[in-house]
Simulated assay, not measured.
Amino acid sequence: MRTALINSNVLGILAAIGAAVAFSVIDVTFKFLSDDYPLYQVVFFRSVVALALLLAIIIPLEGGYRILRTRNTRLHLMRIAAVAFANISFFSGLAVLPLAEAVAIAFATPLIVTILSVLFLKERVGPWRWGAVIVGFSGILVIVKPGMDAFQPYALLPFFGSCGYATLHILTRRAGGSDKAATLSFYPTLGFLIISALAGLIFGHGNWATGAPLTDVVLKPWAWPEGFEWGIFAIAGVSGAIGGYLVGQAYRMCEAGLVAPFEYIAMPLAVVWGVLVFAEWPDQSVWLGSALIIGAGLVSLWRETRTPGPPPRPRPRSSG
């Protein structure tokens, strides 16, 4: 029993790390595409590719299309609303704030997840997990060194985004008691496809564009990709399918308070992408912050393999 629990938690943590890698790839693709394409178009193409992969490969491997039947319809609708709100909020803030400061504010997500897991899932979060969250967040602050400019009204946008992502993770943990990871990934992806298609129909002609960066993240006209940009859209879609599946697997296998600190790994990954893709070599503060982030995750993983406790599995309520 103890060994099985350790294996489950370790596999869930590895899934969370894999999801962080996949989502960091999505961030890179968005950086490439956001100047020329509206958010709804990036999301639309990403959703088409991700949904195709889910339906053709991932769902058949996890049990077939019967796993899409769910008793948690209301929870999945709430998850779709939460992740849509999170994306719009974060990327709108990203358009008007410096990247580092927007990311720093958005990384409040793991802390919010840990708090919500105590309040709504009744999970027990001990000092080691709280310490991992706090040390990881300290690493983020060391890296980005947010100044007073981060606390302007626009800074509320990525914070609202972090609240949306945290809500998504808590709902995923709630639904994960009976639904497969592929099911947890399928419904938000389908929701993204429908919402982005509707946004394209409404805003695609460009008549709503204002010239203001904050609003034109959504209101820019549709533009057909050219050349290698098709490949970037495809990479975003593949990463979305993998990341969505892995994050669902992580939150259904492990307590939310355990998984949350490993989301901080996305920040050192951003450093790696900056070096490899944009030739942005980090300074000493970035290396120090990355060491704190990775160290917090490794200590949390070590602690979990030493003294695991039975994770409470909330029973999903039938709402469909």
Rank of each mutant, 00 (worst) to 15 (best):
G206C: 00
R174V: 13
R315W: 07
A199C: 11
A52W: 04
L54M: 11
G63C: 10
F228I: 14
A106C: 11
F262L: 14
G297D: 03
A106W: 11
G237L: 00
D283M: 09
G274D: 04
W302Q: 04
S34K: 11
A106S: 15
L171C: 09
W128K: 06
L258I: 05
R174P: 07
G309C: 03
E101H: 06
G295A: 03
F203L: 14
G177F: 06
A132R: 09
G139P: 05
P98Y: 05
R79S: 12
A22K: 03
W281K: 06
V144Q: 12
A223R: 13
F90G: 04
E226S: 12
W208E: 12
A20M: 06
G136E: 09
R66W: 05
I67Y: 07
M267S: 10
T114Q: 09
G191D: 08
A155H: 01
A84E: 10
F159S: 07
G63A: 07
M148W: 10
Q41G: 07
G18D: 06
P110R: 04
S239M: 06
S318P: 02
E229Q: 09
M78V: 07
I80W: 02
L53P: 00
T307L: 15
L11F: 08
I265V: 15
I134Y: 09
P268S: 13
A150V: 07
I235D: 01
M1I: 10
Y154P: 06
L201I: 14
R79A: 10
V299K: 00
T73N: 06
L53K: 03
T189N: 12
F23D: 08
I242Y: 03
L276T: 08
V125A: 11
V142C: 02
V21L: 15
I6N: 12
L33D: 13
I6R: 12
G136N: 10
L5K: 05
V271R: 02
A106P: 05
H205T: 14
F85T: 15
A155M: 14
G274Q: 04
W130T: 01
F30Q: 10
N9I: 15
V272M: 12
D283F: 07
D27G: 13
L116C: 05
E255T: 15
S300W: 00
P311S: 10
I232G: 02
T70W: 01
P310K: 14
L288C: 01
A104L: 08
D216A: 08
V42M: 15
R313V: 15
A102P: 00
M253N: 15
P311F: 03
P60V: 14
P312Y: 06
A266Q: 10
A20S: 11
D283K: 08
A223S: 12
G12W: 00
L214K: 01
A291K: 09
Q249K: 10
D216T: 07
L61G: 00
I59H: 13
G206N: 02
L94E: 05
P316C: 04
R66M: 09
G211F: 10
S34V: 03
G309L: 13
G136T: 10
A212I: 08
K180A: 15
V272F: 09
V275E: 01
V28L: 11
A22S: 15
F262T: 13
M267F: 05
L298D: 06
T167Y: 05
T109P: 03
F30T: 12
V125E: 03
C254M: 09
A50Q: 02
R74A: 15
V43S: 06
I232T: 11
A181D: 00
P308M: 14
L53C: 04
G243K: 05
F160V: 14
G257Y: 08
A81K: 00
P110I: 10
L116Q: 04
